[in-house]
Design a protein around this nucleic acid. Structure first.
Lengths: 255, 255
DNA sequence: AGATGTGACTGGTCCGACCAGTGGACTAGG
DNA sequence: CCTAGTCCACTGGTCGGACCAGTCACATCT
């Protein structure tokens, strides 16, 4: 008799396309270490025979792998597609998509920056070497010089400062998140910033803030440095945030 | 006379494939809001005429978009490919990939969690309403009950707690990042956790920590709450991090 | 009205073809 | 002997057409 003591649980199944299986096979080989960056894949026509599918299917698989940063195909290359070293590019792409599409408010993005930047500076004040401190101070000098040139130049120098801090914090995830969110924020308010009349005063104030941050880093006071950094971001961006949405930002500054 | 006062700077150029232009057009339309999740793309054959390319090219573009979680194609669907809402799937995939090859270390991921979770709790302690505080305390009760059931059940209740906190913090970017990184961390050390012998003691300690955090939130002491949360994560995960890499984690706890 | 069947679509896969490049081998020149 | 040039097999990129299995809307039949 067929018992029915325990009802069998079936799970919904979605069709697996041929090109997906190819992607899986190649990614698995990569995860197992059978394929390493720098190596070459066989040519598309060779893969056709190995996987026993058409070239269209092989190509769709290669396009997926390529968009994920796993391989790169070059026309005419007799060695075939190249296995690439791992890069944060695709991760950044996904995060940008998250920040742009997921109906995020400007206030959320700025709060995120305050958190990330503060944490990076807190880490930096603890982990920095003397050489790295000197590097950071060097970027301050560049900022001061940039003030007399151009707002774009100042912005560039500012980016250099934050990149130096991120390097010191030795956390590439923080670094990547920060860069992505900074880019998205700038794309949201770049037009408004361009119209700022008192840009020179803004730049001077920003430089002043950065200098205080570096002083706190030199003193090894991570908590003060982080707080200053968050305050700086708040002062810089708060005017673009509607008043009721500023509450969470202030919550990140008060102790 | 052709002057050569300022040498022209040329930049390296790499060929842009047709399918990439299609991807760009669709992604741009999405970024501009002309395409929103739930809408449908024209059928492949219709896209062929709109983009004036072959179906192979259109399909390669769709495969790329599909692997990035932007659209989904179903055979036979007369409405055409569907624009998907944002999903953390691809983001997690990229992070997991980087974490597996040591491009991201476990220490970096945990530091990230300590920062994000601490910030979320700091925000929550400032922004919470009384009802939300009650909700969080309710999840603590669920955690206590789960201890007697199963480690998986406890883990689930823990997730519920953190989700409640993230809701209160009213920042979906923090929430998403936290979820993604938690998933990646778990996938990296799930095998080791399964072998933990003193899991009951771990669960009790974790519950104790969470209770303290909620107390600090009730008191409105965001700084203490955040510090406790970071300490909790450190105690929970530090054993899986090699000693020299724990320094940055400790730097996030010390005041 | 409800069940049923039909047909115009869909995407998934395959095939064969052409093109513009690349790079190595081979050859002609020093 | 070595170098410079040519040549050609082969690469990936794109195209057009074909077939299949599945889906859904609609018209048909009971």
């Amino acid at each position: 008799m067929a018992g029915r003591v325990q009802p069998v649980r079936f799970e919904p199944v979605q069709p697996v396309r041929a090109y997906q299986r190819i992607v899986e096979q190649i990614e698995d080989a990569l995860a197992r270490g059978e394929l390493t960056p720098g190596q070459r894949l066989p040519s598309e026509r060779e893969l056709v025979t190995q996987f026993a599918v058409s070239r269209s299917t092989v190509r769709e698989a290669l396009r997926v792998l390529e968009s994920n940063g796993v391989v790169r195909s070059r026309p005419g290359d007799p060695n075939g597609p190249e296995i690439l070293p791992f890069s944060q590019g695709p991760l950044r792409k996904q995060m940008t998509r998250l920040a742009r599409v997921d109906e995020l408010t400007l206030a959320e993005l700025i709060a995120f920056r305050m958190i990330m930047d503060g944490a990076a500076i807190q880490l930096a004040s603890r982990l920095r070497t003397d050489e790295q401190l000197a590097e950071m101070e060097q970027t301050l000098v560049a900022m001061r010089e940039a003030i007399d040139i151009d707002f774009a130049a100042f912005s560039e120098a500012d980016v250099a400062f934050h990149e130096a801090v991120a390097r010191v914090s030795r956390n590439s995830l923080i670094q990547t998140c920060n860069e992505v969110v900074r880019g998205v924020v700038l794309s949201l308010i770049s037009d408004k910033i361009a119209h700022a009349t008192n840009s020179r005063a803004l730049m001077l104030a920003s430089l002043e803030h950065h200098t205080e941050v570096v002083e706190a880093i030199r003193a090894g006071d991570g908590h003060a440095a982080a707080r200053l950094a968050r305050q700086n971001l708040y002062d810089y961006y708060a005017t673009y945030v509607p008043e009721p949405a500023r509450d969470p930002l202030r919550a990140l500054i008060d102790d």
